[in-house]
């Protein structure tokens, strides 16, 4: 029976709409007074009848530097998943990023991000079967190492996503670059490859991710604009 495609769309969207989205890089936390607004697009790729489809998962978000802790910047980040909204889901994230280590020669800068994702379909006016107005939540812990090379940022990250309803080890490495085209230092693009849940294998092929049966490989890209009065740059080279 050739039936292994039939819930692909549902399940891929389920995942992509939630933790498996691309967000603005947090390799370098913003300094107090700095703000960044941007949009990211991307998520895992799925094999749908032999065609590998990237996911149209759009996130509008912002970052704001708020303070220094031990001379290292701490910022907050916040966003709305626009694609999820089209499905009647209010999905938001809120988190912080902190610079643990400055870049020093061959030693990369290291940042830590804690982020909470929450989603609910309770706001949708649609008729639903009883008991299907629900909420969902997950936590993301990310460590990102990065080098700044001629004003272009290259970063390598490792994330753990913890779904509160189904906690387990879900490691997600990523590799990305953030660059400012021309002289527009405040306007930045980023490209990122991300291997979602690289430690997970599954025997089921109801959903066949591009890297089936291990995890799900994906791409993301984004555009951001940084503004505001910059604070001390003493902790970031």
């Amino acid at each position: 029976m050739k039936s292994n495609q039939y819930v692909t769309l549902l399940a891929l969207c389920t995942t992509s709409l939630l933790t498996a989205c691309t967000t603005l890089p947090t390799a370098r936390p913003l300094h107090p007074g700095e703000h960044q607004a941007g949009v990211s697009l991307g998520g895992p790729m799925v094999n749908y009848g032999g065609t590998h489809i990237p996911l149209p998962n759009a996130v509008v978000e912002g970052r704001s530097g708020i303070r220094y802790i031990r001379l290292k910047p701490l910022d907050i980040n916040y966003g709305l998943n626009v694609t999820a909204a089209a499905f009647g889901i209010a999905q938001l994230h809120l988190g912080t990023s902190y610079l643990l280590l400055d870049e020093n020669g061959f030693i990369p800068a290291l940042s830590m991000t804690n982020r909470l994702f929450v989603a609910t379909n309770a706001l949708t006016p649609q008729d639903k079967a009883p008991g299907t107005k629900q909420a969902w939540g997950a936590h993301q812990l990310a460590f990102t190492a990065s080098y700044m090379i001629k004003n272009q940022l290259i970063y390598l990250g490792l994330d753990q996503y913890t779904d509160f309803g189904l906690p387990q080890l879900l490691l997600t490495p990523s590799l990305g670059v953030e660059f400012a085209p021309g002289h527009a230092k405040d306007l930045k693009f980023h490209l990122e490859a991300r291997y979602y849940a690289i430690n997970k294998t599954k025997s089921l092929d109801t959903v066949e991710w591009t890297t089936h049966p291990r995890g799900a490989f994906g791409f993301g890209l984004g555009l951001s604009y940084t503004f505001g009065q910059r604070g001390c740059s003493c902790s970031v080279k």
Partner: peptide
């Protein structure tokens, strides 16, 4: 079983 998330059925379907 396919996405390692606990998302409820009502998020993307009528249930």
């Amino acid at each position: 079983t396919n996405t390692a998330t606990s998302l409820g059925s009502g998020f993307l379907s009528q249930g």
